[in-house]
């Protein structure tokens, strides 16, 4: 896990690893960092070469109230997860 404080980014590079389930991993991290994401404006960045993940992760975290951006990099994907902006009441 690599945290870059200036951007408040929590980066997980899981490229090349035989990761049993990129989705479950991402969900676990989102649950774990729930407070940082929702209250401190942090973002989780997942670097993965698992192509399925770019469909499953955004879909699953969207129902939880998160927005994702997916960028294709050189041989891998970068998925950034942030809390959606809330309506100001």
């Amino acid at each position: 896990m690599d945290t870059t404080p200036e951007a408040n980014l929590i980066v997980h590079d899981i490229r090349g690893q035989i990761c049993p389930s990129t989705l479950l991993f991402a969900l676990r991290e989102v649950n774990r960092e729930q407070q940082a994401l929702k209250e401190k404006g942090a973002a989780i960045v997942i670097l993965t070469d698992n192509r399925n993940a770019i469909a499953t992760i955004p879909e699953a975290v969207s129902s939880m109230g998160y927005a994702t951006t997916v960028e294709k990099k050189d041989g891998y994907y970068q998925i950034e997860i942030r809390a959606r902006k809330k309506r100001t009441n």
Partner: peptide, 25 residues
């Protein structure tokens, strides 16, 4: 949740227990 089921080769039984997918879900 709206995603694919797990593939057996992706997650063996030990890891399944260790990862605690039910807890995550």
């Amino acid at each position: 949740i709206g995603t694919f089921p797990l593939k057996p080769d992706e997650l063996d039984d030990d890891t399944l227990i260790q990862l605690d997918p039910l807890g995550i879900i």
